[in-house]
């Protein structure tokens, strides 16, 4: 009995997480304004405490990108950072009051790593959503 309840609880918490991510993606999309085209992908992860979600992406030279990062219904719950291939920190939203979006003008094509983690002073767990758009 205990096992079935535990299984059920895990299944439900997973479903709640998925649902939460879906809702947040819509909220985060408002930062990708009409001048930008999304890359058609949904980057998200459920984070607890100090967990960090990261992914690599290619930013092509000659383009302007907008990166939006959200968690919860308020702006500023999620911190995002961008590193180059040599692990040099190129940008941290912490320096700009956890800004939910920022624009990046790319001179030459780069492979970067985007990291996202919760600002634990505002949130201890939640769904992290990152959206990438580029200017037409």
């Amino acid at each position: 009995m205990k096992k079935s309840i535990l299984t059920l609880l895990i299944a439900v918490s997973t479903m709640l997480g998925y649902s939460q991510c879906d809702s947040l993606a819509g909220i985060c999309e408002k930062h990708i304004t009409k001048n930008y085209i999304t890359d058609g992908q949904a980057y998200r992860a459920l984070l607890n405490g100090t967990e960090v979600a990261e992914f690599k992406t290619t930013l092509f030279g000659g383009n302007t990108y907008r990166i939006a990062a959200c968690s919860g219904t308020d702006d500023g719950n999620l911190v995002f950072k961008i590193y180059d291939q040599e692990k040099n920190l190129l940008f941290s939203s912490v320096e700009f009051s956890n800004t939910p979006y920022w624009d990046f003008v790319i001179e030459n094509t780069m492979v970067v790593t985007i990291e996202a983690n919760l600002d634990n002073t505002r949130s201890s767990s939640g769904c992290a959503v990152v959206i990438i758009g580029f200017k037409r």
Binding site: S13, T14, L16, G17, A45, S125
Partner: peptide, 9 residues
């Protein structure tokens, strides 16, 4: 979220 929930959705 439940602290035991999955870390990736």
């Amino acid at each position: 979220l439940d602290s035991n929930s999955v870390s990736s959705a």
